[in-house]
Nucleic acid binder design. Structure first.
Length: 693
DNA sequence: TTTAGGG
DNA sequence: CCCTAAA
């Protein structure tokens, strides 16, 4: 009976799958990563609302006339609403859902920020010599947008030729994002399926030069330069400084959540990060599935809605603007992370995917204005919060930036299985609105560090056209808001969850089915990262009352996020591993004494490596605190120690004599396949010593 | 539980 | 030391 189980293995008739006996490390790699990914839940990016808001603000501050924000809002929402209707019959592609991936992002129109000499950037578009231009611009923008939606193409191109086509094309989902920088390709349309490829190629191909040219071209015409950048709504961490522009383009967001400054004590994290960081381009093909969403409405670009307001023709473009972006990351990871939904609760995770945003700087030559309209970057103005006002003094240098998208931070929502879908939706909604509702502000991150001094000039801050704008990023930070639940009332949470949060995932706020500030209960950590970033996710309760079915009470949310958006999220079950809450305190360190080392060495000499249990029994049988694993580890370190120069050794010095024995024993046993289940164990090293020579 | 390795 | 995949 007892043998039954064993038999399966040992029985000759049974073919045991041959598992390549590769080093464990190798064998493990895969699974390991999977684990890592588990925590990296795909998320959906941005809330158009956020962008909208910025746009709005930007608008109001930029244009002198200053339309009432409200008006803008109204328009905006209107558009959205209509859009929704229009889109309603579109099929939503939900492959991603099927795969368990999640909608990770929704892109919003890009916000182009440009400083113009004496002209308010915005104001200057529509006017003067180019009425046609403004049209063109809008067209381009729109198209650009749609492109963006499709492939997150990073470059905005001003191409005369494309103008007409784009316009009509904008309606197509299969829209060509082809070679925009090539004036000849305006007509081509590429099937969406080709997008990735295309994109990759084009972008890749688009060497800096071409881009540059294009940009310059644009510049001359006074339009905007769209560069690559995205803004993230970041709650926890600074974005990873992005790499160089060309590389970034399509996947800036590698889900890196760490930041140079923040090292979590949990080693897992680093692992995680590492796992992600590299992933990039190569294998990183973006398989985006657009959920042509009827779910998402994105805030139109400022100019766009300006236009759409008086020009119906613009609508088409507008329409492509909303989409949900699914990153391949989801696709890649999800499969492996697929977990049975057996846990008691699952979590809806929005991955905050820190996007490393990059803002490329377009080489700017054409423009120069001496006049200083100082606000080089002026978006987001009003709000109570931060206003990033940057004054640029240099006459010749301008910093051109465009913000591409904002992302929503990662959110974890915990909700009982028994909850209804509806409530799930609501919960998500609430969570999101809680964040948005709290108000947002923009944070500027340069080289991974936040630039806090609002009064510094861009120059002073190091944001120079000539500098690495690649490393410039923006993020939306929730302004500090009320924390409904003071930490005090969640004592228990502080114990376990905090720990969990820290260890399990870099950022895993847990919205308890009801409450939710856990997310921030590890301020120590978080704050290090974003001091100013406290986010308060209102406890749903607080919010819920006001927020009911998908309604966003707070006008600050420019976009009504249909609760339904939750559907687009991947529900990734999070296995609640309470794990080491209180229990797993790291054992106290107990350095091996020389005597112990000696005993160990001797035992190993005789037994060989690979028989740690025996070693343990033989030499440490009564040392309860030394497990065979410990012994093994110690041996490992001994071998290492022995192989390094004495100067590099630390701790209580081990007699060289012992170390020598360690080395020889190690050499011997590694050569003699020590373990060998075999009968009489291989002769002890001692004997060997002689033989060896 | 042990081993074997990586973190 | 810890954590885990494998055995």
């Amino acid at each position: 009976m007892v043998l039954k189980r064993r038999l399966e293995y040992g029985f000759s008739g049974y073919q045991i799958p041959v598992i390549p006996k590769a080093p464990r490390s190798v064998r493990r790699r895969g699974p390991r990563k999977k684990l890592v990914d588990d925590h990296q839940i795909c998320a959906f990016e941005l809330l158009a609302a956020v962008a909208g808001k910025l746009l709005q603000e930007s608008e109001s501050s930029a244009s002198s006339n200053a339309s009432e924000p409200k008006d803008l809002l109204g328009i905006h929402l209107d558009g959205i609403k209509q859009e929704r209707v229009e889109e309603n019959n579109k099929t939503v592609r939900s492959e991603c859902l099927d795969q368990g991936s999640c909608v990770e992002s929704a892109f919003i129109p890009e916000l182009a920020v440009k400083e113009h000499n004496s002209n308010p950037s915005l104001g200057d578009l529509p006017n003067t010599e180019n009425d046609s231009f403004s049209e063109r611009t809008s067209t381009l923008l729109s198209s650009d947008f749609s492109k963006k939606v499709d492939c997150e193409l990073k470059l905005g191109i001003c191409n005369d030729k494309t103008e007409g086509n784009l316009n009509s094309k904008a309606e197509d989902d299969t829209y060509a994002l082809g070679d925009l920088s090539n004036s000849k390709t305006g007509n081509e349309s590429v099937r969406q399926s080709e997008d990735e490829t295309k994109q990759g190629k084009d972008l890749t191909a688009a060497n800096p030069c071409s881009v540059k040219n294009t940009v310059e071209k644009c510049t001359n015409r006074k339009p905007l330069i769209n560069s690559d950048s995205s803004v993230q709504l970041s709650l926890y961490r600074d974005p990873l400084p992005s790499a160089s522009f060309p590389k970034h383009r399509n996947d800036v967001n590698l889900g890196i959540r760490d930041d140079d400054d923040n090292s979590f004590r949990c080693s897992k994290f680093s692992t995680k990060f590492r796992a992600f960081r590299p992933q990039p381009r190569n294998g990183y093909r973006r398989i985006r599935k657009m959920l042509t969403s009827k779910y998402w409405k994105v805030a139109p670009k400022l100019r766009d809605y300006e236009l759409s307001n008086n020009n119906e023709a613009m609508r088409p473009c507008f329409r492509n603007r909303k989409s949900i972006h699914v990153r391949d990351r989801c696709l890649r990871e999800v499969p492996s992370k697929r977990r049975r939904l057996c846990d008691r609760s699952f979590v809806v995770a929005y991955d905050q995917e820190t996007s490393s945003e990059s803002i490329s700087n377009a080489p700017e030559k054409g423009t120069k204005g001496d006049n200083c309209s100082s606000d080089a970057i002026n978006k987001k103005g009003n709000a109570a919060s931060t206003s990033v006002k940057v004054h640029q003094k240099s006459k010749d240098h301008k910093v051109k930036l465009s913000i591409k998208s904002f992302k929503i931070p990662e959110l974890y929502i915990e909700i009982p299985e028994t909850a209804t879908v509806g409530s799930l939706k609501r919960t998500v909604m609430e969570t999101v609105t809680a964040i948005l509702g709290g108000g947002l502000r923009v944070g500027v991150v340069l080289q991974g560090k936040k630039v806090r001094d609002d009064n510094r000039t861009l120059q002073q801050a190091g944001i120079l056209q000539s500098g690495n704008l690649d490393n410039l990023g923006f993020m939306l930070e929730p302004t500090l808001t009320q924390v409904p639940e003071s930490p005090k009332d969640s004592p228990h949470k502080l114990h376990c969850e905090t720990d969990q949060n820290l260890c399990r995932s870099p950022a895993s706020p847990v919205l308890g089915s009801g409450l939710s500030n856990d997310a921030f209960d590890s301020p120590s950590k978080m704050e290090q990262l974003h001091e100013s970033n406290h986010v308060a996710i209102h406890s749903p309760r607080t919010n819920t009352d006001t927020v009911t079915d998908g309604e966003v009470p707070d006008s600050r949310a420019l976009v009504t996020l249909p609760a339904v958006s939750a559907e687009a999220l991947a529900m990734v079950p999070v296995n609640q591993k309470p794990k080491r809450c209180e229990s797993s305190q790291r054992r106290t360190r107990r350095p091996f004494s020389v005597a112990e080392v000696e005993a160990l060495v001797e035992a190993v000499e005789i037994l060989g490596t690979g028989r740690w249990r025996d070693v343990k029994m033989r030499a440490f049988d009564n040392a309860d605190h030394r497990t065979y694993v410990d012994l093994k580890d110690k041996w490992k370190t001994l071998v290492h120690t022995a192989s390094i120069s004495p100067q590099q050794r630390r701790g209580e010095p081990v007699p060289q004599e012992l170390l020598d024995r360690v080395l020889s024993a190690h050499a011997y046993w590694s050569q003699h396949q020590s373990k060998q289940t075999g009968k009489h164990h291989v002769e002890p090293l001692k004997i060997m010593d002689a033989q060896a020579d």
